[in-house]
Write a protein that binds this DNA or RNA. Structure first.
Length: 86
DNA sequence: AGTTTGACGGAGA
DNA sequence: TTCTCCGCCAAAC
């Protein structure tokens, strides 16, 4: 059944990302009907601080970290999971 | 209704 | 490798 909000699907997908792995905004968008890389990025920027979602596992399609104020913390968390970052 | 603004993506220089 | 340009799309003005 179709979710009323594609954001719900997004949160679900992000929550399913296995530790030590990463995915991109575009990859997520392709799995969600009605979403686009741009929309996903915007949705992620609006996540509350206390979220349980592993948001740090979502990076850019080119393997780089996204341009946002929390990229420092993101890099730290990813390294803690053994993820190699260019 | 038109413009600006992004945690983007891909192609071209 | 880094930068620019363009397409994309929802939200804020």
């Amino acid at each position: 059944m179709a979710e009323p909000d594609w954001r719900e699907q997004l949160y679900t997908l992000v929550a399913m990302i296995p530790p030590g792995t990463t995915t991109s905004y575009g990859a997520l968008a392709q799995q969600i009907s009605g979403a686009s890389a741009r929309s996903v990025a915007r949705a992620m920027s609006q996540l509350p601080e206390g979220t349980r979602l592993p948001w740090h596992r979502v990076i850019r399609a080119d393997g780089r970290l996204p341009d946002h104020p929390g990229r420092d913390e993101q890099a730290q968390r990813l390294r803690a999971e053994g993820v190699f970052i260019r």
